[in-house]
Amino acid sequence: MVRNRLAFTLVELLVVIAIIGILIALLLPAVQAAREAARRSQCTNNLKQIALGVHNYHDTYKAFPIGGYGCCWGTWLLGVLPFVEQQALADLYQGEGYDGRPATPEPPRYGVAVNLPVTRTQVATYTCPSDSNTASMSLMSGVTFHNYVANYGNTNMLMITPLGTDTAGNPNRYGGAPFSWTWFQHGVTLDAKGIKLADVWDGTSNTLLFSETVQGKSGDLRGFAWWRSGSHFETYTTPNTAAPDVLNAASSCVMTDPANPPCTASTTLFHEYVAARSRHPGGVNAALCDGSVRFVANTINLDTWRWLGTIRGKEVLGQF
């Protein structure tokens, strides 16, 4: 029997199409991963720009910027703006530098009309493309959320309480941090100091300067960085941990939206601390005080991560 076909049968065609389909299906996750890798490298670059901006700030003012003034009178975002080519935006802001001591009249906060042209701006250098932007006019007067946070050390935002233990059961004591904030609340004062590079005794390549956060959704205030409590992180917990972040008040923590990382409200015993978090698989980007940026895995040794958070802890770091 002689077969002299000039065409494919239907079954042959279907098989070919199925194979092509499978090959594309194989490729798709790789394409998505490549897209995320590109976004992550953009994110890394932003962090590098911020770290270099802080170094230029240090060249000008001989100290790092203040982490935050009171609750609402400017954070490091403002201090660094002129050094990431946003001088015009920085000039628009009014009332920076007030720390919350009673005064009449009180200088304008970040959320009042005169400052909204600044605080409604989504600054591209402060935004990581792996995350989606939360800001909308129906939420917090349209004030923007951002993705980078300053290192407040290895304990909590008050930077005073020894909290937790290391893997040998020793207490985790505060070892200094590149950033702090001025505070006047409930009759207690805390004066922020602009830390100098010379204060970084542990070495600039062994101390974190900045890391990432995620923008809270549905009213959650993580990444709400024109406001003090949205602009810092602590190395008390490892990156992207399942342990809840401790936020300033119950109204800042929205656990009904599954997009938000776990959180709880602070109490008189449990002060505010926030972990470094990102939407990248497996870890967070972190800038060190020497201006280098690296990707830190979620599985980093807890002690190493806490020691990276201190400027004068005098610890010997492991690999990270």
């Binding site: 970040y110 917090m140 008040a249 119950a250 109204s251 602070s266 109490t267």
Partner: peptide
């Protein structure tokens, strides 16, 4: 840890973060 019910900073209606009133949660 847990917040003692009925204590803590409260956000007034239409308030912005930083406007919370009251004393920290017990």
């Amino acid at each position: 840890n847990a917040v003692k019910p009925g204590t803590g900073l409260q956000m007034p209606a239409g308030g912005m973060p930083g406007d919370e009133v009251g004393t920290p949660a017990e």
